[in-house]
């Protein structure tokens, strides 16, 4: 799916006196199958950009189009038909009191109507168990445990798998590994990479890890004070190393 941002601006005001220009007339075309990594200092507008695409931040000006269709008026739950999200807080993507299997059932219906019929069948359960097995964490035996009994890393990994339970074309990852230990972080990013390649997803990935930014994606964007400072793709992106990126922040 192609996502097009035209002249998108967003200003936050905390007290009606100070204003933070999080996005300033952003023009950005995310082409189908782009895997974009976004880097930038805190407060540079990275998360706001992602939230503007997902709908959790309403933009003040400009337009956002999914495949030519304006979506800036659509609510988060409406845009979830097109985009799946992985949050910075590894607990945000799952419902803690619900069983693991119920979380997956809801994710499997992300783009569909939730009907008053029982859809948690044995067949569905087997399907989910098979999917979860690929993580190699043994979570396929915990389908009937509350999601809240699992660790942050486990929940973030499951959130990723949940994102692809239903048809998905765009994956938005907002610092998905920032709160995780190195081992969990690795599992999450490996899984993300695999899913994006297998399902040919369009992905936008925010990170503070310059090593990850250099390793992943076919295009890299640096944000600075609410504008896109650098936008590098193709061969030039491949040649970038963490050391090059570190120089951007110097």
């Amino acid at each position: 799916m192609q996502i097009e941002l035209k002249q998108v601006s967003k200003t936050y005001s905390t007290d009606n006196v100070t204003y933070i220009k999080a996005l300033q007339k952003i023009d950005l075309t995310i082409r189908p199958k782009d895997f974009i990594t976004i880097v930038g200092a805190n407060g540079s507008g990275k998360s706001t950009l992602l939230n503007a695409i997902a709908g959790s931040a309403t933009i003040d000006e400009g337009s956002i189009e999914f495949d030519g269709k304006p979506v800036q008026k659509l609510a988060v739950h409406q845009r979830s038909k097109y985009v799946a999200r992985i949050f910075q807080n590894p607990l945000s993507g799952t419902a803690p009191s619900l069983h693991v299997i119920d979380n997956f059932r809801l994710a499997a219906l992300r783009t569909k109507v939730k009907l008053p019929f029982i859809g948690n069948t044995k067949k569905f359960e087997e399907q989910v168990a098979n999917t979860i097995q690929q993580l190699g964490l043994g979570l396929e035996n915990k389908l009937h445990q509350p999601m809240g009994s699992l660790s942050g890393g486990q929940r973030q990994a499951l959130t990723l798998l949940m994102a692809v339970q239903d048809t998905v074309r765009v994956l938005l990852l907002d610092e998905p590994t920032a709160a995780l230990d190195p081992k969990s972080a690795n599992i999450v990013m490996q899984t993300a990479q695999k899913l994006i390649e297998q399902q040919q997803l369009t992905a936008v990935y925010i990170t503070h890890s310059l090593a990850d930014a250099a390793q992943y994606g076919n295009r890299i964007i640096e944000m600075k004070n609410g504008v896109i400072a650098k936008d590098i793709a193709g061969e030039e992106k491949k040649l970038l190393t963490a050391a090059h990126l570190a120089a951007w922040f110097a």
């Binding site: 609510a75 945000s92 619900l98 059932r105 809801l106």
Partner: peptide
């Protein structure tokens, strides 16, 4: 029985985690 259905799961998720439910298409 109602809470076990797909609609019931959506309702419970909505009360449990508003962020999760709206990201999964729940109004």
């Amino acid at each position: 029985g109602f809470l076990l259905t797909d609609f019931g799961i959506a309702m419970r998720a909505s009360g449990d985690s508003a962020t999760m439910s709206e990201a999964n298409g729940v109004n």
